[in-house]
């Protein structure tokens, strides 16, 4: 049984009691977002990683890189796979097993917002022969609300943190040294007959090539409850809200998108308050990300 049972039975009343006094159950004012902490490069086995905490909500994002043959229709484009996993440890309500609907939605959310900013041609080593395949996975390990913003920021931070080795294809095998590592990529023989050929490449041990991501989405989410707007909702607040609205900005501060998935209608004046609050918060959020 989840801890806050009273909230479970009279959840709206519980929250309303606090909001009527302009304060939230965790002591924040309605316009205060939780502190965001981002640590990058913490996972050495990943080419890029970020651990993000938004209050108690915690997400761990990592990027794994493999060298593969490009897809036939896109010989000079790399490949990016994105996944979000909601681990059972993150909440008493998450069960193990196949991905829940929520995880699938978050995966698509993350993928659609991150992919457009990755230049796939940068991931090409040699057109038609060898490209990078990146796998970005974001794990939510603690859900205290506003997962959408947390996983997007963690994903962006991890991708910005990615550093790839330099790779060149060589004709024959060479001895591995301290600075280089041999990579053999088995190619698929189209006719499916005979021995599969391999491409032998050498990769530097040092990783210095970033993805040079020049722009990325910065999200700020709000929920609406009883005619009031709350920034950066906690999990209890999310469960009783009337609607949710997310603003997406560019690092320059321009608004590039608004998401409002269903829910009660939002009157114009509340929409404007949200936008104003969001614009105020963006520079701080951006600074946090740029500091990594």
């Amino acid at each position: 049984m989840d801890q806050e049972v009273f909230q479970k039975v009279h959840p709206r009343e519980y929250l309303a009691r606090f909001l009527n006094k302009d304060v939230r159950p965790d002591g924040r004012s309605l316009t205060k977002a939780r502190r965001v902490n981002i640590t990058v490069s913490s996972i050495a086995t990943a080419v890029g990683s970020a651990m993000l905490k938004m209050g108690k909500t915690t997400a761990v994002a990592g990027v794994h890189a493999t060298l593969v043959q490009p897809a036939p229709g896109a010989p000079d484009q790399g490949i990016l796979d994105v996944a979000v996993e909601l681990l059972p440890m993150a909440s008493p309500n998450y069960k193990s097993g196949r991905s829940s609907e929520e995880a699938i939605c978050l995966t698509e959310y993350l993928r659609s917002l991150i992919s457009p900013h990755i230049n796939m041609s940068k991931l090409c080593v040699e057109a038609g022969l060898l490209v990078w395949q990146l796998r970005l996975t974001v794990y939510c390990v603690d859900n205290d609300g506003n997962l959408e913003d947390a996983i997007l920021l963690a994903g962006v931070a991890a991708m910005r943190n990615v550093l790839l080795p330099s790779v060149r294809i060589i004709g024959e095998e060479v001895d591995e040294g301290r600075d280089a590592q041999m990579v053999e990529v088995k190619t698929e023989n189209e006719e499916g007959e005979g021995e599969a050929e391999s491409i032998i490449a050498v990769a530097t041990v040092e990783r210095t090539n970033s993805l040079e991501i020049d722009t990325y989405p910065l999200p700020i989410s709000f929920i609406l409850f009883d005619g009031k707007v709350l920034i950066d909702p906690s999990v209890a607040e999310e469960s009783v809200c009337d609607s949710r609205i997310t603003f997406l900005f560019r690092p320059t501060g321009e608004l590039r998108g608004v998401l409002k998935p269903g829910g009660k209608n939002v009157p114009e004046n509340l929409y404007q308050s949200c936008l104003t609050m969001a614009k105020e918060r963006i520079p701080k959020l951006q600074a946090k990300l740029e500091a990594t």
Partner: peptide, 9 residues
Amino acid sequence: MPPATKRSR
């Protein structure tokens, strides 16, 4: 490290 198929040391 690009992992594809590593040459074994």
